[in-house]
């Protein structure tokens, strides 16, 4: 496989990998590094690439694994900067301002979800993958994906209703 051909294969889903990485790692820079790292790994193993049923699914799996590894080593190194920063920001005024901004509100709710639910919500509701694709990417059976997805959506709903009532009342 030539370099141009590889780039052509990878281009359509490159941003999907980036967004998944950013969902998990929060920082844009780290997400870019993760995407780069995964694509590089894919390129060096390009010989095996024809063997995969879907290169895209494989790349998503690799991104997920890479990001989870990064998070583990960060936790081990006591470097949970991103998360602690963000609780500090939660002054009452800021909270009020941000509550009006649905995007940042949702961002916060999603940041608090368990990793697996975060990943599934990202893959389904943002990237619109089918259940079969997600179950292949995460090596889970489709029913388990559906259950986790439903759970994640309901958690988001609860948080939204809480915020909504608080805002109205």
């Amino acid at each position: 496989m030539k370099q141009a051909e590889f780039l052509q294969t990878v281009m359509p889903f490159k941003d999907k990998l980036f967004r998944l990485a950013k969902r998990l790692l929060v920082s844009t820079e780290e997400a870019e590094d993760a995407t780069q790292e995964v694509l590089l790994k894919l390129w060096t193993n390009k010989g095996k690439m024809e063997g995969y049923r879907s290169v895209e699914a494989f790349a998503v799996t690799a991104t997920k694994n890479y990001c989870l590894d990064r998070l583990r080593s960060k936790q081990a190194g006591n470097l949970k900067l991103v998360h602690s920063n963000y609780t500090d920001e939660n002054t009452s005024l800021q909270r009020e301002v941000e509550a009006r901004d649905s995007v940042s509100l949702m961002q916060k709710i999603m940041d608090h979800l368990p990793e697996q639910q975060k990943i599934i919500l990202q893959l389904r509701d943002v990237e619109q993958y089918e259940f079969e694709e997600i179950s292949e990417m995460l090596d889970m059976n489709p029913t388990a994906v559906r259950v986790a997805l439903s759970r994640a959506r309901k958690t988001v709903r609860e948080e939204l209703i809480k915020k909504h009532n608080y805002g109205v009342g």
Binding site: F6, L7, V10, W43, M106, R157, I161
Partner: peptide, 25 residues
């Protein structure tokens, strides 16, 4: 109350990486 959820998902899909792919180690 559900509006932020669906709006967020639509917005989130628009985000793209600015960096070019570099495949030389």
């Amino acid at each position: 109350a559900y509006q932020p959820m669906f709006r967020f998902f639509s917005e989130a899909k628009k985000e793209t990486s600015e960096k070019d792919i570099r495949i030389h180690p």
